[in-house]
């Protein structure tokens, strides 16, 4: 474990807590894309298949349970909770996220570390996570006034993967044979997708104006 990875995990944890806080306290999911949340639930479900078979550390297991629990409960809240679901603007959240799942699955069947079910699912979860934010970014472009919590959620979600890139650089130089091209390239693509969001997020913070993404 290194500081970059710990900071990345904490930032990721903060992003899901910010979103859970928003949905649970103000009982609203306005501006939140259900499709991105469903994709993330699928990402964790396919990435943490080894949660009960390989014990790495208490930290690792606890964090996996938190990410699984939070992502599925957020999907439940937006789909089922009688008050929250009313604030979900489904006619704005129209990204065809199923069109993201299949190409990621096909790519995982072609490019993986080892042709086993677990490894193909692992690669699938990395490719899917790289594009999972797209429905949310599209929704933000359509949402005129993005509330602070949603903006913070997306920012933290992007920042966590950027911190992971620093972690991979650190581990590459400190651990022999630490090479994971699939993870690195997927993580880089994922972070680059946030580039324009980061720009507008920083601009709005610097000029102290409401965050708005150009359509």
């Amino acid at each position: 474990m290194n500081i970059f990875r710990l900071a990345g995990d904490m930032t990721h944890l903060a992003s899901v807590l910010v979103l859970l806080l928003k949905i649970h306290t103000i009982k609203s999911c306005a501006g939140v894309s259900l499709k991105t949340q469903e994709l993330y639930a699928l990402v964790f479900a396919t990435r943490y298949l080894d949660i009960f078979t390989d014990f790495i550390s208490l930290y690792n297991t606890v964090m996996k349970l938190i990410f699984l629990g939070s992502s599925f409960s957020i999907v439940w809240y937006i789909r089922r909770h009688k008050i929250v679901r009313r604030s979900y603007d489904k006619d704005q959240d129209t990204f065809r996220h199923y069109f993201l799942v299949l190409p990621c699955l096909l790519l995982a069947l072609v490019i993986h570390e080892k042709f086993t079910f677990r490894e193909v699912m692992w690669a699938f979860s990395l490719y899917l996570e790289a594009v999972a934010i797209l429905p949310q970014l599209v929704l933000l472009q359509r949402t005129r006034n993005i509330d602070n919590l949603t903006g913070q959620y997306v920012f933290l979600l992007g920042a966590y993967r950027a911190l992971y890139i620093l972690n991979w650089i650190y581990r590459y130089f400190t651990e022999p044979h630490f090479v994971h091209w699939i993870t690195w390239i997927a993580g880089l693509v994922q972070t680059l997708l946030y580039a324009d969001f980061f720009y507008y997020y920083f601009e709005s913070w610097k000029n102290n104006v409401k965050l708005q993404l150009p359509a």
């Binding site: 990875r5 990721h12 390989d54 790495i56 996996k64 570390e113 080892k114 086993t116 490894e119 992971y164």
Partner: peptide, 10 residues
Amino acid sequence: DLEQPMHDEL
């Protein structure tokens, strides 16, 4: 055979 690559990151 090579044991399953251990993914120790989240």
